[in-house]
């Protein structure tokens, strides 16, 4: 636990000291702000929540930025040579992986927290429906955590950050859009495809539903990719 927190803090701090992270956070906020305004305009200020834009673009933007945040986590250490420092220190691989995951989650949550002023603005100028906004953010948090875990796994299989981001982006896109393919196919196979889709689990949250199946789904996918990351590191020790 102490070691996990050590790595997590180090990761979080290295985001805060890196100009790249500020650029990423800034672009993220600009995009979210634009989406917010666009959505308000589009609905003629008639919606009482912000969930419409989260459901269409907000979630995609979040996944993209999670992949970008996660790409450096292991790939950069491999490039710098510091990976050898971490893997020869008296730390379990699990502690390294969990630490890196939590550190990047901290950054992503901070970025999300900065978007909370949109609902606050709504509150100033109207009477927004708080419930769906809260569940929407819960959904974003879970989706973000899952995306980071997938990004972390992608980062563990290469020493090139760009490759890591592309691999993560690809995996996320497949997991996201596979539901659309599932709907098109229909039948039992279609249902299975829809079930493993990120999108079909996310959309319930924006309507104000806390679906425990969806929560378990996101936590399971997160755990699965963290586990795969640990195995990927173990494999690299043996190969």
């Amino acid at each position: 636990m102490k070691n996990t927190m050590l790595i997590a803090l180090k990761e979080f701090k290295s985001y805060l000291t890196s100009p790249m992270a500020y650029v990423i956070a800034c672009v993220f906020l600009v995009l979210y702000g634009s989406l917010f305004i666009w959505y308000l305009e589009d609905t003629q200020y008639s919606d009482t929540s912000i969930n419409g834009y989260l459901d269409i673009w907000g979630n995609l933007v979040l996944m993209l930025f999670a992949a970008v945040l996660a790409m450096r986590l292991i790939a950069e250490e491999k490039k710098l040579g510091t990976w050898e420092l971490l893997l020869t220190a008296p730390l379990r691989d699990t502690e390294v992986v969990l630490g890196k995951f939590l550190g990047s989650l901290g950054m992503l949550v901070s970025m999300l927290a900065l978007t909370l002023y949109f609902p606050l603005l709504l509150r100033v100028f109207g009477i927004p429906d708080g419930g769906p906004i809260l569940t929407g953010y819960l959904g974003l948090f879970l989706l973000g955590a899952t995306s980071l875990a997938i990004g972390l796994f992608a980062s563990s299989v290469t020493s090139n950050q760009i490759v890591a981001a592309v691999v993560a982006g690809g995996m996320l896109a497949i997991l996201y859009f596979i539901g659309i393919a599932g709907d098109a196919i229909g039948g039992a196979a279609g249902n299975i495809l829809s079930y493993i889709s990120l999108y079909s689990h996310f959309s319930a949250f924006v309507t104000g539903i806390i679906d425990t199946r969806a929560i378990i789904y996101f936590l399971s996918i997160t755990a699965l990719f963290l586990f795969l990351t640990i195995r990927s590191i173990e494999t690299s020790r043996w190969s």
């Binding site: 000291t17 710098l80 040579g81 510091t82 050898e84 420092l85 020869t88 008296p90 730390l91």
Partner: peptide, 21 residues
């Protein structure tokens, strides 16, 4: 390995440094 690593100081060929600290 975990116990063994406590007793080792290691300088790899590629010096493992974070450049931004």
């Amino acid at each position: 390995s975990l116990e063994g690593r406590r007793h080792i100081g290691y300088l790899p060929e590629a010096i493992p440094l974070y450049t931004d600290v």
